[in-house]
Amino acid sequence: MHQDAPNTEAADDPIRWEQYLAELVSTGHFDGGSSMGRGERLRKNQSSQPAGNDLSGFIRVRAVNLEGAKQFLAGNPVYEAGGTVEIRELPRT
């Protein structure tokens, strides 16, 4: 999730997050997630740089494919507040 929602109050509302996460857990497809704070970008033989401020957190869900993962957008406070949510596939082990 990105930190670009026009309605930051709604995107950060703890009650909305509690409701959304409870709904995800009830589906049996929720595999965790976290908000994200500041950090650094590191490259060998270069000075460290501050990490970008565009990402605010992530959520892991189990889905058959990217299309299936889109069903979990509904209710996401960042998405509902007009912010950006990226969906990415993780490697299967």
Rank of each mutant, 00 (worst) to 15 (best):
K44P: 00
G68D: 09
E89C: 00
V61M: 07
L24C: 15
G32D: 15
T27M: 11
E86P: 00
L90C: 12
A74H: 12
Q3C: 10
G33E: 07
M36F: 07
L24N: 15
D54V: 10
L73F: 12
G75L: 08
T27W: 11
T93I: 04
F58V: 09
N45H: 14
W17E: 14
D13G: 03
F58P: 02
L42R: 12
R16C: 04
F72L: 07
F58L: 14
S26F: 10
G82W: 08
P6R: 08
A63E: 05
T8Q: 14
D31T: 03
W17N: 11
E9D: 05
G68W: 04
E80F: 01
S48F: 00
S56T: 09
P6H: 04
G39P: 07
P6G: 04
A51E: 05
T8K: 11
G75V: 11
A11P: 05
R62F: 02
K70Q: 08
H29L: 00
R62I: 08
V78H: 02
N45W: 06
A51F: 01
G33N: 06
Q46S: 15
F58R: 02
G75K: 06
H2N: 07
G83D: 03
V64T: 12
I59C: 12
Q19Y: 02
P91E: 03
M36L: 15
V85T: 03
E18V: 04
E9S: 02
L24I: 13
G75H: 10
N7A: 03
P6A: 11
S48K: 06
M36K: 11
P50Q: 13
G57W: 06
R88C: 00
G32K: 11
G28K: 05
Y79L: 00
T84Y: 00
K70G: 05
R41Q: 05
V85S: 02
G68P: 04
D54G: 03
L73T: 01
S26I: 09
S35A: 14
R88M: 01
A51Q: 04
Q49W: 04
D54F: 05
P77H: 06
A10G: 00
L24R: 13
P91T: 06
R43A: 14
T93H: 01
F30N: 11
G57L: 08
E80Q: 14
F72D: 09
R16T: 07
I59Q: 13
A5G: 02
P14S: 12
P14L: 12
